[in-house]
Each structure stands twice: as C-alpha cells, then as structure tokens.
Simulated assay, not measured.
Amino acid sequence: MVLTKGNQSAGTTFILLGFSEFLDLQKPLFMVFLIIYTVTVVGNLGMIMIIRINPKLHTPMYFFLSHLSFVDFCYSTIVTPKLLENLVVEDKAISFTGCIMQFFLACVFAIAETFMLVVMAYDRFVAVCNPLFYTVIMSPKFCASLVAGPYTWGIAASLTLTYFLLTLSFCGSRIINNFVCEHSVIVSISCSDPYISQLLCFAIAVFNEASSLVIILTTYIFIFHTVIKMSSDGGRQKAFSTCASHLTAIAIFHGTVLFLYCVPSSKNSGLIVKIGSEFYTVVIPMLNPLIYSLRNKDVKETVRKLITYSMQF
C-alpha cells in the first residue's frame, strides 16, 4: 500500500538500521557512545557554567563559545540517545513524525554551528585587527544580533527542507540504512519524485559550506597579515594562541563535512558515510569543549577552583 503524504504518512514508521550489521559489537559500541555522550553533556554544560560564573570570561569571545557549547549539546542530544537505544533494543523503529522532527532539529543546530564558527572568526578578526575599537564594535547588542543570525537561518532553512520532505509519499521499503534521519536517506525511500527536495538541500548545503568557508578564510587572511606585521613576539604569540582553538574546531568540523561530500559511490560508501556521520554528529560535539578548555588558562583555572571547592565538602 502506498503511504501518501498527510495523515497516512504520519501513521507510518521507519527502521533505523544503525550499526545492526555488527551484531557482536552492539554492547561495546553502546559503551563507547555512552561515554562519548556523557563527556559531551558534562563538557558542554560545564563550559556554559564556567563562562557564567567566571567574571573574566564575560567577554564576546566566551559569549559566542557558550552558544557553540549550547548548540553542540542540543545537536548531540537530538541524535545520540536514539542511537544508544537502538544498540540495546531489537525494535529499531522510529515514527514518521519522530524521524521528521529529528531531521528538523538536527538540521537547525548543524546549520547554527556552521555559522556560529563564522561569528567566532569575525570576533577574532576584530580582536586582532581592530583591538582599540573591539569593545565599541562588539557591543552586547551587536553580539546578540550576531548570535541570533545562525539560529534564525538554521530554523528558516530547516523549515524549508522539512516542508518539502512532508510533500513526499512513502511506499515499499521503510528501512533507513543509517542511525539518524538525514535528508538523503529519507528521500531515498520515497516513492515520489524527490527532485525539488534534493535540489533545495544541495543548494542550501553548498551555500552554507561555501559562504561560511569564504568568510572564515577571508577573516583569517586579514588576521595572519596583521599578526605578521606585529613587532612584538609576545603579541604575535598571544594572537596565534587566541586563534588556535578556533582554527582547530573549524578544521575538524569542515574537514568532516567536506569528507562526507567527497565520499565516492561504491559498495563501501554506506559504511564510510555512516562512520563520517557518526564523527560529525556525536564526536565533534564532544571535542569542541575539550579543544577550547585545554588551551585556555582562564577556563582551566576556573575548573581547578571548582574541583578544589567541591573537594572541601
């Protein structure tokens, strides 16, 4: 029976295969992903708390970092609990509504993270290239506007893609060969023409990746040019130090995205995409707070004080 759009689609279910082809690894994978998710939650919520309680960290750079941590926490929480559930239960079903909601929310925060990294690059550009006007340019109102941008575009783009997914009908196989409801796997099991939906997804993805990388690369060209002209070695080192964590996060995030786009079509590509998607959706949200905390003296000092304080009670 063909499952058409509207009420009939809302009543169907999909099967998320996840890593079910590796039956012997279900429990080890569950433990690994549970540890990763625990570190992700503690790391990102801990980063937000540290930024809030330490007055030294009440600056635009850490304001943006707290939002990056919030985005990472939400993104991981949308994907990982369902992945963990599917590793320990036999019924790997997800409702049509649940699948669409997972896609929508994951899309919102994935796009928000893409442009939150752009906002952080602009912040570093102003700090290094216009230090005397930094506090004037990066006013609280302007910072709030910069943060609102990634969320607004994320919601708008995700609503557009979700709307066109809802116009599709589904019949035949309901099996999704992935652990998350991504756009490509949803349209792959549709029995209606997904051309418009695929075209929109491609256009939005290319726009997001191209525009964000162009802005980031442009800002860092100006940053490096300014740093090279600095006469003080200390100033040079400080400038590079403040940018190093952000550059690391950018390299990991965009490197993974570009890798997924460039996976060749072959019999092994499904597994490669699945592993790449796992890194993109589960591992990166764990890495970001570690990257920023390990290279930051103020963050490490706040963590030490919290640990010392907690050990006294």
Rank of each mutant, 00 (worst) to 15 (best):
G6V: 14
Q8E: 14
G11T: 04
G11L: 06
T13H: 05
L23G: 07
F30V: 09
L34C: 06
Y37Q: 02
N44E: 06
M47V: 08
I51H: 00
P55A: 05
L65R: 02
T77Q: 08
T77D: 04
V79N: 03
T80G: 04
D91H: 05
K92I: 15
A106C: 11
A112V: 12
M116K: 03
L117H: 13
A121S: 15
V128G: 02
N130S: 15
F133G: 01
T135I: 12
P140Y: 08
F142A: 13
T152D: 01
W153K: 14
G154Q: 04
L161A: 12
T162F: 01
F170G: 08
F170R: 08
R174S: 15
H183D: 08
S197W: 01
L213V: 09
I216E: 01
T219C: 15
K229I: 13
K229W: 09
G235M: 07
K238P: 00
I250H: 06
I250F: 12
F253A: 06
H254V: 01
G255L: 01
L260H: 03
K267Q: 14
I275E: 02
E278F: 15
Y280H: 13
L290M: 05
K297Q: 14
V303E: 06
V303Q: 05
I307K: 15
Q312M: 15
F313N: 10
